[in-house]
Design a protein around this nucleic acid. Structure first.
Lengths: 335, 335
DNA sequence: ACCAATGGTGAAATCGATTACATGATCCTA
DNA sequence: TAGGATCATGTAATCGATTTCACCATTGGT
C-alpha cells in the first residue's frame, strides 16, 4: 500500500506538497497539482487513516448506541443518523448494548480513547463515563440523546412532544366513546414512558376518566404487549380500548385480543406508538402515533455536528412534529 | 487527556514499560507493574487509539454493509455480527448502502484507507474495490459475504441452503393439495433469489406442477409483496397458495389477499421466508422458512476473524441449518 | 533599481503509541 | 569465581500523515 512518501518521490515534490494538494489544493500551483494527482492516481494512493487521525485528533466517526438494533423503531432512527453522518463525512460505529450497562460504558469509553469524535445514545440511561464527561465539559461534551428527552441529563436531544402525542391518542379514544381504557407503557425508568403517561393522565382528566384508566407496564417488546394485554383483558369490566406505547406491543396486544375472542376494532380499539413500517399492514391497519424516526436520527446527528464544530454553547432540545395516523384499529365504543 | 508519557513520568519508568504493563504484563516485575497501574488509575489514562492503530496497523474495526438496516432480517443479522465482533474485541462500522453502488464503494474504500480491518457485506453485489482486492489477495482478502452465497465471487460466506429450504416450503404446499402456486421472488440479480427459485422449480417438478407455477418478481419489501400478490390474485385461475421470498413481502401479500376478499388460510395459503420476529404475530401466524439470522451474523464474523488471523487459505462457505415453521397461514387446498 | 509583498515549496517537528535492540543486574553452573 | 543465561528495563526508531516556519523566486510599486 503506497504512502505519501511514495507519492512525493514519484511526483518529485515533498510530502508537504502532496498533503497540500489533497487537503488545500488552492495553495498549490496548477502544474505541481497535476503532477501530484497523476502520481496519486498511478499509485492508487489513499491517505492512511490512522496517521491522519493521530495528527489531527479527529476520527470522523460517531458512536450510536441502541438498546436493540433489531427493534424497527431504533433501526429507523439509526438509518437516519447514518445518512446524515455519511453526508457530513462521518461514519457510524454501531453499539448494540442489549440493555446492558456494561456495554454502554464500553462504548462510552470509545470517546475517551479518541476512537470516536462524538456519541449519540438512543436509550435513556446515561453511562457514568459520559456523565463525568458532561460534568467536566458541560454542553461542549460531544454527546447527544437520540430520542428520549431528559432535561436533567444536561444533554442535547431530539424528540417529539411525547406528552402531547399520547394525549392526542387518548383524546381520539375518548372521542369515540371509550371510557375504560387500558394503557400499556414502557419501562417507567424511561422518560418517554413517563412523559407519555403524563399525557395520558392529562387527557383522562379532561374527560373525567381518571378512575377508569387501567395501567400496565411493558417493556416495548411484542411479548410484553401480549402478556400485559392478556392481563388487562381478563376478568370483568375490561377496557374497550388499549393504548400501547409501541407498535410492537400493539402487535402483541392484537394477538392477545384475538386469543381472548375480542375482535378489533368492533370489540376493542387499539392504538400504537411509533408508526413502524408494518403498522399499516396489520389487520386491521394500526392506528398509531407517527414519529419521524429517520428525522430523529438526522436531527440528533445535526446537533452533534454543531457541538463538534464548536457552534453550541448550551444543551439544546429539538422537538419534531408527530401526527396521529388514524387507521382501522380504532372505532366507536360499543355500548 | 493524559498520554503514555505522563504515565511514564509519574511512575518513574520509560514509556516502553508502561506499554508493556498494558499489553504484556507478564514480562514486567510485580513492583513496577503496581507502580504503573497506580499512575494509570490516578491519571485516568487510556491509550490513544489512533496512535496505537498507526503503529500496529490494526484498527479493531470491521465494516458491515447492508442494503437497508431498517429491514428486520438485516438488522437481526447485524445484531449477531455486532455481538460476535464485540466479543472478539472488534467494533462494527455500520454501512447502510440504501442499495446504492456508490455508497457500497465508499464503504469498501475504508479497507484501503486502513480505516477497518475487514468487511462483511450483506447485499449480493461485490463492489469493484473489493473485487480488485480479492483479485490481488485471493482468499486472504478480509472480505466475507453475510447471507447471499455466490460461489463465483471467491468470497467466504455464511448462509442457509436456500434451494432446499424453498423446496421444503413448496413441498408443504403441494402436500396440502395446492396445485396452482404463486411465487414472489426477490430481485433475480440476487443469488439467493435464484437459489430459492431453483428449489421451487425442483419441487414443482417432483410434483408434476411445472406448468402451474406463477412467478412474480418482487424486491423483498412489503410494498412489492402487496403489488405482486395483487397481480397474481387478479383474473381467473388464480393460485390457491403464495410463497414469498421474504416475510415482509408475505405481509404485503396478506394485505392484498384481504383486499381481494381472500381469507387466509381458508381461501389462500401463505408462506414467507426469514421468520422475522413479527411473523408469528400476524393473523394468521405466518408459516415461514426460519433462518438463524443472528447466527448468520456471528458466523460471518467468525469467518472474517479467521481470515484476519491468517487461519484461512481458501474461501469457505458455511451452511447453517434452517427449518420450516408451520403456523396458521397454511392449510389444505379447497377443492 | 531597490524594497516589500506575494506565492509556491521544502525541511523538520509533531501526534502517541509499540517494539527491536541494547544494557545492566542477578543468578546459576562448572 | 568466571562465564553465560535470564530477567527487567531503557533508548530510540518507527508507523504515515499534517503543519509551522523558513526560504527562494517572482511581481509590482515608487
Amino acid at each position: 500500500m503506497p504512502t505519501i512518501q511514495d507519492v512525493a518521490r514519484r511526483a518529485r515534490v515533498s510530502t508537504a506538497t502532496v498533503s497540500r494538494v489533497l487537503s488545500t489544493p488552492g495553495v498549490v500551483s496548477e502544474a505541481t497539482r497535476e503532477r501530484v494527482m497523476a502520481a496519486v492516481d498511478a499509485l492508487g494512493y489513499e491517505p492512511n487513516y490512522a496517521a491522519k487521525s493521530l495528527r489531527t485528533l479527529r476520527t470522523a466517526k460517531i458512536v450510536v448506541t441502541v438498546p436493540d438494533i433489531s427493534n424497527p423503531f431504533f433501526s429507523s432512527v439509526i438509518r437516519g443518523a447514518e445518512e446524515a453522518a455519511q453526508a457530513a463525512g462521518y461514519s457510524v460505529l454501531l453499539g448494540d448494548t442489549r440493555h446492558s450497562t456494561e456495554r454502554e460504558e464500553q462504548y462510552a469509553g470509545m470517546l475517551r480513547r479518541k476512537e470516536a469524535d462524538g456519541l449519540i445514545f438512543l436509550g435513556h440511561r446515561l453511562p457514568n463515563t459520559l456523565a463525568e464527561l458532561i460534568g467536566r465539559q458541560g454542553a461542549r461534551a460531544p454527546v447527544v440523546n437520540g430520542c428520549e428527552f431528559s432535561p436533567d441529563l444536561g444533554v442535547s436531544s431530539a424528540h417529539i412532544d411525547n406528552a402531547a402525542a399520547a394525549a392526542e391518542a387518548m383524546d381520539l379514544l375518548y372521542g369515540l366513546g371509550h371510557r375504560i381504557i387500558g394503557v400499556i407503557t414502557g419501562p417507567l425508568a424511561s422518560p418517554i414512558s413517563r412523559d407519555r403517561l403524563e399525557g395520558v393522565r392529562a387527557s383522562a382528566g379532561r374527560h373525567g376518566a381518571e378512575t377508569t384508566l387501567r395501567i400496565a407496564t411493558g417493556d416495548f417488546s411484542v411479548e410484553s404487549g401480549e402478556r400485559e394485554a392478556q392481563g388487562l383483558l381478563a376478568g370483568g369490566d375490561t377496557p374497550t380500548a388499549l393504548f400501547c406505547f409501541s407498535d410492537e406491543m400493539a402487535m402483541g396486544a392484537l394477538a392477545a385480543a384475538r386469543r381472548a375472542g375480542r375482535r378489533c376494532p368492533d370489540d376493542l380499539s387499539l392504538v400504537g406508538f411509533d408508526d413502524i413500517r408494518f403498522a399499516r399492514y396489520l389487520d386491521p391497519a394500526l392506528t398509531t402515533v407517527s414519529q419521524p424516526m429517520e428525522e430523529l436520527g438526522r436531527t440528533a446527528v445535526a446537533l452533534l455536528l454543531d457541538i463538534l464544530a464548536g457552534r453550541q454553547t448550551a444543551a439544546r432540545s429539538v422537538t419534531l412534529p408527530h401526527h396521529l395516523a388514524v387507521r382501522g384499529s380504532t372505532g366507536p365504543a360499543r355500548r
